[in-house]
Simulated scan of single mutants.
Amino acid sequence: MHSDPQQIAEIVAATAVAVGLMLAAAGLGSAIGWGLITSKALEGIARQPEMRPQLMVNMFIFAGLMESFPFILFGVAMWFLFANPFVGTLSSLAGGG
């Protein structure tokens, strides 16, 4: 028994939609994170201007950590897009394996 091309097309289409949602969420989360990080840093600098160097260093450290999330999610999304595990699972189930 072979897997149906229609089922494979549906899986690939659903995966493409899911990848689009993943990348949109990563972009939105990154933008919100940058906004929160910089706004809080500016609030801290406005309250205590002498702490500016320390606050800027901390801001860039946390911004770098926050920015790694979209890149990790991008890697996972590309894995789903190009090495789709669901198509392989369908093929192995259809093959009786």
Rank of each mutant, 00 (worst) to 15 (best):
M1S: 14
S3A: 14
D4W: 11
D4E: 13
P5H: 09
Q6A: 15
I8L: 12
A9F: 09
A9G: 09
A9I: 08
E10W: 08
E10A: 15
I11H: 02
I11M: 10
I11G: 05
I11W: 02
V12F: 02
V12W: 00
V17H: 06
V19S: 00
V19P: 00
G20M: 05
L21N: 09
L23P: 03
A24H: 00
A24G: 07
A24T: 09
A25T: 10
A26F: 02
A26E: 05
G27A: 10
G27Q: 03
L28Q: 00
G29K: 04
S30P: 00
S30W: 11
I32T: 10
W34H: 09
G35W: 03
L36S: 08
I37T: 01
I37L: 12
T38N: 10
T38L: 14
T38C: 06
S39M: 11
S39W: 06
K40H: 09
A41E: 07
A41M: 09
A41L: 01
L42K: 10
L42P: 00
G44A: 08
G44D: 02
I45D: 01
A46R: 07
R47E: 09
R47T: 09
R47C: 02
R47Y: 07
R47N: 07
Q48M: 05
Q48S: 11
Q48I: 04
P49N: 06
P49K: 06
P49Y: 06
P49F: 08
E50Q: 14
E50F: 08
M51S: 13
R52C: 06
Q54W: 06
Q54Y: 10
L55G: 02
L55F: 03
V57A: 13
N58W: 08
M59Y: 05
F60M: 11
I61E: 11
F62M: 06
F62V: 04
G64I: 00
L65W: 07
M66S: 13
E67C: 07
F69P: 00
F69E: 08
P70L: 00
P70H: 01
I72K: 07
I72G: 12
L73D: 12
L73W: 08
L73V: 14
F74I: 11
F74K: 01
F74T: 10
F74N: 05
G75D: 04
G75L: 09
V76E: 04
V76Q: 11
A77L: 07
A77I: 04
M78W: 08
W79V: 13
W79N: 15
W79I: 14
L81Q: 11
A83Y: 13
N84W: 04
N84P: 03
N84I: 08
P85E: 14
P85I: 12
F86I: 12
F86M: 15
V87E: 05
G88N: 15
T89S: 15
T89A: 14
S91W: 06
G95L: 14
G96C: 14
G97K: 15
G97N: 15
G97V: 15
